[in-house]
Amino acid sequence: MAWAIAALATMGACGREDDRPATFTYVYETVIAPSCATIGCHNKVSQTYGLQFETKEGAYAGLTGQACDEGSDLPGEAVANYVRPGDPDRSQLISLLYGDDVPRRMPPDRGISEVDIELVERWILEGARCD
């Protein structure tokens, strides 16, 4: 299956431009849940920096300090404003993902691809809604 490895590596250099929907559901399911909600990181057991990402609602509350459903209680502790809606440049989440001017890049075990960080930036730029 060496051909499969070569094929997958080669396919990384081509492909369409990113037209994925920048909704929080999409960001959560394709970026946050697989990369950040693992054991030892931001799940119910570890709660690193008080952040629990094992549900979409918990991740949204932890990142934005807002509840997904307006009027409902926050499902988790809002530790800081990691996300400033409309302003990815001033959102600490983006600095953490790029590893710029922070003590530790997130996730520490392996970085998130640039195309996924750009998707998160786009979600913030478009208002960081819980959609």
Binding site: A2, I5, L8, A9, R20, V115, D116
Partner: peptide, 17 residues
């Protein structure tokens, strides 16, 4: 061990080796 993965086969830049 050699490994490769692609998180979105139609999208540029989602690969890792």
């Amino acid at each position: 061990t050699l490994e490769a993965k692609h998180g979105d086969l139609t999208l540029r830049g989602k690969d890792a080796e």
